[in-house]
Structures are given as structure tokens and as C-alpha cells.
Design a protein around this nucleic acid. Structure first.
Lengths: 79, 79
DNA sequence: TTCTTTTGTAGACTATAGTCCGTCGACCAT
DNA sequence: ATGGTCGACGGACTATAGTCTACAAAAGAA
């Protein structure tokens, strides 16, 4: 699983858990709705500032987002 | 202190601590030497994959790099 | 001093992050 | 059926991540 895919997976599940739509999240972190969509589908990777903006909106520390991303990359590596 | 500056600061100190030159690090993580230089000076921000490549080369977990980056952002915010 | 390694920096370039417009289909209400 | 929200997806665009070449300015070691 690529970093983009892993991050997208974490993003989507965290956003869903907060009950936010892609558009609400996008407005909240000052990014474009279509970009959030592409991130979740692993078709784009975020920059550092995007990671920070998203983490703030989701109320999850950025290092925790990255930790979870690494975690599922490791999991998929095992199989 | 901006995210770029904070990350640059962490990058430079971590690289120095490992006794690596910018060029050695660049070769190691398959990035350009001049780009490493700009990152350290806060003139560029890394993408997710750059963060991961750098963290691997420095043998510091990416989430730890981010944690330290957030930490000094917070510190500079207080003053 | 002189030699060597390291880093800053500039300029031109390519790849991609991120925006903004729109359309469509799925789903869920009424 | 139809109206609303939501997400996938397209194309065209702008901003910037990241490369490459080259040279100059530290900084260290001899």
C-alpha cells in the first residue's frame, strides 16, 4: 500500500468518524473539495501544510495521523 | 514560526546529529541536494513522500519528525 | 596561507499539489 | 417522480515541489 493510499484511507475513516462531509472538511481546512476527494482515493499526496491543516480540522495531532498512516502501511506490507 | 521553518530546523538538527552532509542525506533518500538545502532553510515544504524518505534516511519515525516539528512550532508560539 | 568539503543560491526546467469550473450517479428523503 | 446531499470524476488552470547545472561563499583541516 502506497503512502498516498494509506494516508487516504486514514483520512477517509477519520473524517467519517467525525461525521463530516468532504465539503465540510474542505471548507474547514481551507482546501478544495475535489482535492480532499483525490487524497482519500490515494490519487494525490498532501504537503506538510495540508497535513497540518487537515489534522487541525479533524482534531487529530498531525503526528498521530502520520503514525496511523505508517501503521497501515506496515500492516499491508506483512501480507 | 512557520511549518516550513520548523520542519527545516528539525531536519537540520537531526541530520547534523547523524553526522551526515546534505549531499549524503540527499543521495540516501533520493532527493536533490539543493532541495534538502531549501528545506532546511524553510524555503520549501516537503510532501508526504519526502517526509517519509527523509525519516527513513535519518532513522527517525516520520510521526516523530512531525511531533518535533509541532513541538517547536508551539514553543515559538508562546514567545 | 592553500586545499577540500560543505552549504547557499540562482536560473531554467518538469512533475505534481491544489483550485475552480462543471457533470453524473448513488442514496435517501418526501 | 423529485429534491437534496454526497462523492466520483473530468478538464483546464495556477502555484509550487523537486531536479539539474553551475558557481560562489563559508568553514575546516593541513
Amino acid at each position: 500500500m502506497s503512502p498516498e493510499e494509506a494516508f487516504g484511507f486514514i483520512l477517509k475513516s477519520a473524517r467519517s468518524k467525525k461525521g463530516l462531509s468532504q465539503e465540510q472538511l474542505a471548507l474547514n481546512c481551507d482546501l478544495d473539495r475535489t482535492f480532499i476527494s483525490m487524497l482519500e482515493r490515494g490519487q494525490r499526496q498532501p504537503s506538510l501544510t495540508s497535513i497540518l491543516a487537515i489534522s487541525t480540522s479533524l482534531e487529530i495531532p498531525a503526528n498521530e495521523l502520520i503514525r496511523q498512516t505508517l501503521e497501515i502501511m506496515d500492516e499491508s506490507y506483512k501480507t
